Computed example of a mutant assay.
Amino acid sequence: MTDKAQKLSNQQLKQFRSIAHNLKPVVTVAQNGLAESVMKEIDRALTQHELIKVKVQVGDRELRQQAITEICSLSGAERVQSIGNIAVLFRAARQPDPKLSNLLRHGQTGN
């Protein structure tokens, strides 16, 4: 889907967590797991918004962490934060849309 995710600095992680605080989850991963349609929706959301929240409602804590790790691996995104069943993911867009990118709308860049 994309190139290998770049490693975010601590400052970027802090900024991204701050921006994500007011975001709503755009995708929910339920008991059916990571179906192809769910991964396509996550990919679309990352391409448009760069920084997204995903709600992962699968089993216990260990299963949630495995699902989040798999999402990051398949999508090329980096986990910014995960609290409970909510994960914040980031993947820089090649050509971010200023109207859709959560980073550009908040005056940040992914670089």
Score class of each variant (00 low, 15 high):
L13C: 15
A20K: 04
I19W: 02
Q31D: 05
T69E: 06
S101K: 12
S101H: 11
N10H: 06
S75C: 01
V58D: 01
I83R: 13
E41D: 09
V56S: 09
K53I: 11
S18P: 01
R17K: 15
H21K: 14
Q6R: 04
Q81P: 00
K24F: 02
I71K: 07
L51M: 10
Q15M: 12
A35N: 05
S37I: 06
A93T: 12
D97R: 02
S37R: 10
L13V: 11
D97P: 01
A93F: 07
N32Y: 07
Q31K: 15
R105E: 07
T69D: 10
R64V: 12
G84V: 05
Q48I: 02
A30I: 00
T47C: 03
F16N: 13
S82T: 13
Q12L: 10
R79M: 15
G84I: 13
P98F: 10
I68C: 02
R17W: 01
R94W: 03
C72Y: 03
N102I: 06
V54P: 10
A35P: 00
T2E: 09
L100Q: 14
G84A: 10
V58F: 03
R17L: 07
H49G: 00
S82R: 08
K99Q: 06
Q95T: 08
A87I: 10
V38C: 04
M39T: 09
S73W: 05
E62D: 07
R91V: 06
L104W: 12
I52N: 08
K14E: 15
T2Q: 13
R64Q: 15
N102M: 02
N10A: 14
M1W: 12
G84K: 07
N111R: 07
V80D: 02
Q15W: 12
A5P: 15
R64W: 00
Q66K: 14
A93L: 06
R94E: 10
K99G: 00
N85A: 12
G76I: 04
I68N: 00
T109E: 08
A92V: 05
V26E: 09
Q15Y: 07
V27W: 05
R44D: 09
C72G: 06
R79L: 14
A92I: 03
K24Q: 13
A93G: 14
P98M: 08
A35K: 14
H49Q: 14
K14G: 10
V58H: 03
I19R: 08
Q66H: 12
K40N: 13
K4A: 12
Q81K: 11
C72R: 03
Q6S: 00
T69C: 00
R64N: 11
K24G: 04
N22D: 14
T47S: 15
